[in-house]
């Protein structure tokens, strides 16, 4: 009897296993194991990026695209005051959102990690906002902050104001408020994890060595949670700079951000090359600010003694 067809697939796997085991260095093994992910990421990140770079070097001529390579788009984007204005505003709004979110999240994470009895229940409660869609949450804020919204009706009803407040919606403030709420769990979780990891005897040691509650927090708890804070900041800051849903729904004209301009280029303005250029510039700015932030935050953390 011929048993070859049966042994084929087995031999195949064995050969694959053998060649994996036979790879000399750890490095080669690592490369082999990460190959599937690398291919996947290559298609979904690298390829679009290459296309984006290509587009940014072309130009739009009314209906068609001129494929001669040029830096004209970059020149235009870098000299246009509107672009600069929107870019700076986007980064400032994102920074404000990050600051507000982390400032709100830290005490919550601190409470859950160090004081609460039922941690799992609290963590579950934190994720409740995620049970409804992001868009719904943004609309909910619109209802709360609007001219005839919940906030104004309540304040009018109580008699604290006589005319509805108009500064609540359609500006930077409403964008920051909405995003801070939306991002809260993303900030709470990494900070919670870093607080949770702190050995309680470290806090006792600080206390034993003469630190009161405040010193104990500033000299031990805070520096040990810096990695968590950095993670939280990056998780929030990076996507916020490029957010366009929230600013277009609650931002009004004062709350517009760079992503809204980019969206226009790919849509109404029909200038893909300029849109691609703006996207790349936004990415670079975000990367630059993020690296600067990580370096200065770790540096500051090291100086705490």
């Amino acid at each position: 009897m011929d048993d070859r067809p049966l042994s084929y697939p087995l031999e195949g796997t064995r050969a694959w296993g053998k060649s994996l085991a036979g790879l000399r260095s750890e490095k080669a093994k690592g490369l082999a194991l990460s190959a599937p992910a690398t291919v996947y990421v290559g298609f979904l990140v690298a390829a679009p990026l290459v296309i984006l770079v290509a587009y940014s070097l072309w130009t739009q001529t009314y209906v068609s695209i001129d494929r001669t390579l040029t830096l004209a788009n970059y020149r235009e984007a870098l000299t246009d005051p509107l672009v600069r204005h929107l870019m700076i505003r986007s980064i400032l709004i994102a920074a404000a959102v990050t600051l507000a979110t982390v400032a709100l999240a830290y005490p919550i994470a601190y409470f859950i990690a160090l004081k609460a009895q039922r941690k799992t229940l609290w963590l579950l409660l934190i994720t409740i906002p995620f049970w409804s869609s992001y868009l719904l949450r943004v609309f909910a804020w619109k209802l709360i902050l609007g001219f005839n919204g919940v906030m104004n009706s309540a304040l009018l009803g109580v008699g604290l104001i006589s005319d509805p407040l108009t500064f609540l919606l359609y500006n930077e403030f409403s964008v920051v408020l909405t995003l801070a709420h939306a991002w809260a769990p993303f900030a709470i979780l990494p900070i919670y994890v870093s607080l949770q990891k702190i050995d309680p005897s470290l806090l006792e040691a600080a206390n034993d060595l003469g630190s009161g509650k405040v010193q104990q927090f500033l000299r031990v708890t805070l520096p040990l949670t810096i990695p968590g804070i950095i993670a939280a900041c990056l998780i929030i800051f990076i996507p916020t700079v490029g957010d366009y849903v929230t600013p277009s729904l609650v931002g009004g004209s004062d709350g517009k951000m760079i992503a809204n301009l980019i969206q226009v280029q790919f849509g109404a303005a029909n200038n893909w090359p300029l849109g691609a250029t703006l996207s790349l510039l936004a990415m670079m700015s975000v990367g630059f600010v993020a690296i600067l932030f990580v370096l200065s935050a770790t540096g500051l953390g090291r100086r705490i003694r």
Binding site: D199, S201, L202, E204, A205, A206, N207, D208, L209, G210, S211, G212, V220, P223, L224, G301, I304
Partner: peptide
């Protein structure tokens, strides 16, 4: 409180500040 007492402690886990 512990920070005001004239005692100091060597912890079982040593509690060396990792940072």
């Amino acid at each position: 409180p512990a920070n005001k007492r004239p005692t100091n402690m060597v912890f079982q886990s040593y509690a060396i500040f990792p940072h």
